[in-house]
């Protein structure tokens, strides 16, 4: 991929911050820094994978990006225009979201036609009822659902089919950008592959860009053009998908990749794992400086004093580490 200039980005996030107040006592709150100073950009038709362990803030990035939470700080740009709380309405049509759990993100009292048609109602994208029906049928065909099932309710569908309904709903308004938050994590392996393929085909057909949030590194590597790694609210590394997997630099990325169980007995049994000691620290009680230093074998004094910034190590391979 060639070095891009700024204007070709579809979504740009600069120094995004999302702090949640947590009560620790009477009249006392401390900020939980769920996302701290995260910057990235996504090109049209590109997939950026976002990985990290639970509690690292990857879901919060996705939600804050869509202004589902009011950002504590930072700027979000869509096609060069700044997205703020006031004008987010204009962008809702272009930025959509698919959620992890297709069992709780779809209204059990609505028919599939109404679920998929609801965004069309909200954005008034049809003039007659017939047109609405036609659009829903088209969308159902697009995601591989049987159009005859439009009058059914969600409980009549399997997990994979429900996820397709969720995707059809997101696609209803012709978005240019979709946040996929663990969109395939709840599915069985064989069904997961169907949905991943569908994401890829839709991207080819419609040119939509994805922020693909997931914890399964093999899946993320497969689907993403670039991958960003988060640890405790901060981005520690970002690079092209293959580059990141072949040449990881940040110690956290190294251990994360080595911890992935490879579905190949000979490789899996022969590989040397870097087993991290201990658990992720509490985000309410973050270590000073680099958050990873408490589990890092390269940690030095400097790591405790100052938090490293993301720096470019060539070809857009960004790393935040003092020692590597």
């Amino acid at each position: 991929m060639s070095e891009a200039n700024k204007s070709e980005y579809l979504v740009e996030v600069k120094n995004l911050k999302q702090y949640f107040p947590v009560r620790t006592g009477f009249m006392k709150t401390v900020p939980l820094k769920a996302v701290d100073d995260v910057s990235f950009a996504i090109r049209p038709g590109e997939t950026l994978g976002l990985v990290g362990e639970s509690g690292c803030g990857k879901t919060t990035v996705g939600r804050t990006l869509l202004h589902l939470y009011k950002p504590t700080g930072g700027e979000i740009y869509f096609e060069g225009k700044q997205v703020t709380e006031k004008n987010i309405g204009e962008f809702r049509k272009d930025m959509q979201m698919v959620f992890q759990d297709p069992y709780s993100s779809l209204d059990p009292r609505m028919t599939v036609e109404d679920i998929i048609g609801e965004p069309l109602d909200v954005h008034k994208l049809y003039s007659t009822k017939e047109e609405r029906h036609q659009k829903v049928i088209e969308l159902m065909n697009l995601v591989g659902l049987n159009a005859e099932h439009a009058t059914r309710y969600v409980h009549e569908f399997s997990g994979g089919q429900r996820q397709r309904i969720g995707i059809a709903r997101a696609l209803a308004v012709n978005p240019k950008f979709i946040v996929c938050d663990e969109a395939v994590s709840a599915l069985d392996v064989s069904i997961q592959a169907q949905v991943i393929n569908m994401f890829e085909e839709l991207q080819e057909k419609l040119g939509v860009a994805y922020l693909f949030i997931a914890h399964d590194l093999l899946v993320v590597h497969h689907i993403s053009d670039r991958i960003a790694v988060m640890y405790l609210g901060r981005m520690v590394e970002m690079a092209d998908a293959d580059e990141l997997n072949e040449n990881p630099i940040h110690p956290y990325t190294l251990s994360l990749l080595s911890a992935v169980p490879v579905p190949d007995p000979k490789t899996a049994k022969a590989s040397q794992r870097i087993i991290l000691e201990g658990d992720v620290p509490s985000p309410l009680n973050m270590p000073s400086g680099c958050a990873f230093r408490t589990r890092c074998r390269y940690a030095t004094e400097q790591c405790a004093k100052e938090c490293p910034a993301l720096t470019d190590r060539g070809n857009g391979h960004m790393v935040a580490c003092w020692n590597r």
Binding site: S158, Q161, V189, A193, V219, D242, P263, D264
Partner: peptide, 24 residues
């Protein structure tokens, strides 16, 4: 066979997945 084809191929990550069609 189908199960093994529906997970990403470690040696060639960009290879298209071949899912098992149908529902559980």
């Amino acid at each position: 066979k189908g199960l093994l084809k529906s997970i990403p191929n470690v040696d060639n990550m960009k290879e298209k997945l071949i899912p098992i069609e149908g529902s559980p």
